[in-house]
Design a protein around this nucleic acid. Structure first.
Lengths: 193, 193
DNA sequence: TCGTAGGTAGACAGGTCGGTATACCGGCGA
DNA sequence: TCGCCGGTATACCGACCTGTCTACCTACGA
C-alpha cells in the first residue's frame, strides 16, 4: 500500500525535524516525547532514530529549521534597522506566537552546551553583529552602545510579546529604536525612509 | 535525636518552597523531581505533599518567593525609573543569573492557566502599571507609548542577559531609558538626580 | 533478477516521574 | 498521663520516558 505521507517532496529528515519543531514549540520540548513526534510525522520511531541519533540532536535540528525573522538586506542602514523591527511585527502577526523559539529553547534546555543552545548562541551573536554593522555604517556616535540598545529592544519586544498576543510591544520597540537612532546619528546621514 | 534542618526559624512550607525555587531555577522545573526537592530540603516527600498538594502548586509557591528586583519608592518619577534599571543591574550582578525566573517559568510551563503563570501575569501587569504611573507623573507626551517602551527595555535587558553573564545589556537599557525619557519629557520637570 | 537500503509494526528494557500508602515515633498541650 | 499532630522512613503504583530490539516488507538500481 505504501501509505506515504503527504509531503513526499522534501527529504524525510527535514519533514521530521519540521514536525518536531512545531510540536516542541507549541507544547514544550519536555512535554513531547519522541513517540509523539514519530506518530505526528507518520513515521516509525525506528526511522526517526535512524535520522537523528538522539532526541537532543533532533531538538537542535528542529530549532535550526525554526521560522526566522527576515532581516532587510537593502536600503540605508537606518531603513534596514527599522525594517528589521517591522519584519518582527509582521512575524508576530502571522504565526500563532507563543514566544521567541530561541528564548524558549534556552529556558527549557538548562545545559549551556546543549546542541540547540549552541545554535541559539550563534544566531544571537550574528544578530548583534548585524545591528553593530548597520549602526557603524550609519555613523553613530557610540556604535557599541547603540547596537546593544537595539539588540535589547529586539529581545525585549520578543519576550514581552509572549504574554500579550498583540504587537504593541514590537511597535513600541520600533518607535524607540527610531528615536534612539535619531538621537545618536549625524543628521546628514539620515535620508528618506 | 530530632536532626532538625538548619533553618528552623522559618516556617517549614517557606523553607521547602525556597529550596524548590532554587532547584527549579538552577536546574529547570522539568528536570527536578519532587524527590529531589524533598531530599534537598531534608524533608520527606510525605511532608512535602502535606504542605503542597501537587508539584504545580509547589512551583507556584516557589515562584512567588523568587528574589525580586526592588523598585524605588521615593524620588522624582524620572529618578525612580532610572533607579529601577539600576536596581536590575545590581540584581544581575549579585545572583548567579541564569535568566529571568518569570520568563523561564513562562517558557517551561506551556499552559497559560498554570498557577505559576497566573502569578507571572499579575507581576508583569503590575510592573507595566508602575512604569505607566511614573511616566504619567513625569508628564510625558505619550505616556502609553513611553511606558510600553520602558517595559520592553526592561524585559529585553533581562532576556538578553541570559546568554551573556555581564550587565552590559542592562546598562545599555538604562542609557536607552534615560534617552527616551529625555526625549519625551517636558524639560521643566527634569530636575536633580 | 535479486540484494540491499530504508521503510513498517510493535514489543521491550531500564529508568524516572508524580503521587499515595503503611508503619512508626516523639514532643506538647489539655 | 495520654491523645494526637506533624514529622520520619520506605515501599509501592501506574504512567511515561528515551532508546533498542526482532521481524517483516517493498521500491529500486546494478
Amino acid at each position: 500500500m505504501m501509505r506515504t505521507r503527504a509531503r513526499s517532496d522534501i527529504p524525510l529528515a527535514d519533514h521530521i525535524a519540521l514536525v518536531a519543531g512545531g510540536l516542541f514549540y507549541r507544547e514544550g520540548i519536555h512535554m513531547v516525547g519522541v513517540d509523539r513526534v514519530a506518530a505526528e510525522a507518520e513515521v516509525t520511531k525506528r526511522t526517526l532514530y535512524r535520522h537523528f541519533p538522539s532526541k537532543d540532536l533532533l531538538i537542535a535540528a528542529a530549532l535550526r529549521r525554526a521560522p526566522k525573522i527576515r532581516f532587510p538586506r537593502d536600503g540605508t542602514p537606518r531603513s534596514q534597522i527599522s525594517g528589521a523591527f517591522r519584519a518582527m511585527i509582521e512575524f508576530l502577526k502571522s504565526s500563532s506566537y507563543r514566544g521567541c523559539p530561541y528564548i524558549i529553547a534556552s529556558a527549557e534546555l538548562v545545559d549551556p552546551h546543549h546542541p540547540a543552545r549552541v545554535i541559539v548562541n550563534e544566531l544571537v551573536r550574528r544578530r548583534r553583529q548585524w545591528f553593530h554593522d548597520r549602526v557603524v555604517e550609519a555613523g553613530a556616535a557610540s556604535p557599541e552602545l547603540l547596537a546593544e540598545q537595539l539588540d535589547v529592544l529586539f529581545d525585549g519586544a520578543l519576550a514581552n510579546a509572549v504574554k500579550r498576543s498583540e504587537t504593541i510591544p514590537a511597535e513600541a520597540a520600533l518607535a524607540a529604536a527610531e528615536s534612539l537612532l535619531d538621537a545618536a546619528t549625524p543628521r546628514r546621514k539620515r535620508g528618506a525612509a
